[in-house]
Amino acid sequence: MDPNGPALKPPPGVVPKLDNPPNRNDIAIGVITACASVATGCYWGALYAEIGLIYTPGYFVHQWDVRLKDMIAVQYYVFLFGVFYSVVLPLLKVTILLEWCRMFAPRGHRSEGYFWWGCAAVIFVQVTSGIGIVVSLNLQCIPHSAIWDITIQATSKCFDLYKLQVASASIQLISDVAILLLPQQVIWSLKMSWRKRAGVSVIFGLGLLACISAAVRLQTTVVHGKAKDAVWTLPPLAFWALAEMTCGFFIVSLPCIPKILKETGAGSKIKRALGFSSAGDTSKRQWESDGTGPRSNHSRLAGSTVSNTYYRLDPLKSSESTEYLRKGSQDVGITRTTKISVMHEGNADDRYIYP
């Protein structure tokens, strides 16, 4: 074999362009930059491998336009990306599920529902499969350098990675679907208005993006594994695997989104933009700001007493009760206690009980 010749025999009538093969590196740079901006610094190992493929051999380059000796670098970058992907993604999903167990399965009640057991099962699968896949990737050839060095592959022992790649993609897709569905029953059983439950459900339902990425990644894995022109079919597989990891980082941050929207005021702006604000909300805000609502009274409570703040709530001045049956008694002691509760539906900060 001529090391300076094409890595694959071109189709009839096609002349290899080995020195400057046509490519679509502009697409690769755009996708990699967009994903890196979402979760920069978290998976630079995988990004390093994908960036390396820009220079050797380039994205969407036919294999017959690549020198055979350049396939060493290509296979090395593919090997690196596979290892980093198989480490980063399981760790992301374990992080997601542990956080959700802390939120939705408090201690002492974790074994009462399917949610905690479902999370535990997915965590077990992710940890065991992640370790197994990483070990298999590193033992696919003996000696180890034969994984990417094509000059010694003829004398080495290697096994086909196709089944392992399909199994990995299938495990990740099933896990993504499980992570999408697991919190939904818990969310819809929360004691809050249906609008709030729907909002929380939609936020956690954004894991659908990860399911889409995993599904397409599985499809591209099958296509890539069966293709003769593997260099040409590699970019879609790399892009969707990168998108799947990016979605994982996004899902990790989901619990922080409602707090960010509330503190920045973006949530109210989004509601008004979508037309969700109503006259009732406006009147409620006016009621709380004009000095008559519980929020207003609560804010004034530090500088006043309960009696002068809630002077209207004095049942002893407006009616007689059984306590006056003993009005003339000379007994010493507590003859009556009165407990007045003032509540309105809302947050825990808006509930006051005055004895």
Rank of each mutant, 00 (worst) to 15 (best):
Leu313Phe: 14
Thr246His: 07
Asp160Val: 02
Pro22Leu: 07
Pro255Asn: 02
Val342Lys: 02
Tyr59Asn: 07
Pro235Tyr: 07
Ser213Leu: 06
Lys271Gly: 06
Ala73Thr: 12
Cys158Phe: 08
Tyr354Phe: 11
Thr40Leu: 11
Cys101Met: 15
Gln126Pro: 01
Ala243Ser: 13
His144Gly: 03
Tyr311Ser: 14
Ile142Cys: 04
Ser136Gly: 03
Leu206Pro: 01
Trp287Pro: 01
Asp176Ile: 00
Ala198Glu: 10
Val252Arg: 09
Phe84Glu: 11
Ala243Asn: 10
Glu323Ala: 07
Ile270Gly: 08
Gln184Met: 15
Gly248Leu: 01
Ile187Pro: 11
Asp281Ile: 06
Asp229Glu: 01
Pro143Asn: 04
Ala105Phe: 06
Val66Arg: 05
Val134Leu: 05
Met343Lys: 11
Tyr354Glu: 09
Val177Glu: 00
Ser136Cys: 05
Lys327Val: 12
Gly293Val: 07
Ile150Trp: 10
Ser86Lys: 08
Ser329Ala: 12
Arg272Met: 10
Val231Asp: 02
Pro6Ala: 06
Asn297Trp: 11
Phe159Pro: 00
Val342Trp: 06
Asn297Leu: 14
Asp176Pro: 03
Tyr352Glu: 08
Pro183Gln: 04
Gly275Phe: 01
Gly132Tyr: 05
Gln185Pro: 07
Tyr310Gly: 04
Thr309Gln: 13
Tyr76His: 12
Leu218Met: 09
Asn297Asp: 09
Ile29Arg: 14
Ala266Arg: 08
Thr246Leu: 05
Glu50Ser: 13
Glu323His: 06
Ser168Phe: 09
Lys196Glu: 14
Ile203Asp: 04
Pro255Thr: 00
Gly58Asp: 08
His109Leu: 10
Leu261Met: 14
Leu164Phe: 04
Gln185Ala: 11
Val135Gly: 00
Thr305Glu: 06
Tyr55Ile: 14
Phe249Met: 00
Glu288Pro: 09
Val202Asn: 08
Val61Met: 01
Ser341Met: 10
Cys101Tyr: 03
Leu206Val: 01
Pro294Trp: 08
Phe79His: 15
Tyr55His: 10
Phe250Cys: 03
Leu91Pro: 04
Ile187Gly: 09
Pro106Asn: 05
Thr322Asn: 13
Thr322Ile: 13
Gln153Ile: 01
His144Gln: 13
Ile260Thr: 13
Ile152His: 01
Arg285Glu: 15
Asp290Ile: 11
Ile179Ala: 02
Lys163Pro: 02
Lys93Asn: 12
Asn25Ser: 10
Gln172Phe: 09
Ala120Leu: 13
Thr155Ala: 13
Lys69Arg: 15
Phe204Ala: 05
Ile212Gln: 05
Gly82Asp: 15
Gly346Pro: 03
Ile27Asp: 13
Ala266Asn: 08
Gln140Lys: 12
Cys141Val: 03
Phe84Ser: 12
Ala121Phe: 14
Glu323Asn: 07
Arg351Leu: 09
Arg197Gly: 07
Pro90Asp: 03
Leu254Trp: 09
Asp176Lys: 00
Ile123Leu: 03
Trp64Lys: 04
Leu8Tyr: 06
Arg110Tyr: 06
Leu139Phe: 13
Trp148Val: 00
Thr246Met: 10
Phe79Arg: 08
Val88Gly: 04
Cys247His: 02
Tyr48Gln: 06
Trp232Thr: 02
Val166Leu: 12
Ala120Glu: 12
Trp287Ser: 08
Gly113Glu: 14
Ala279Gln: 12
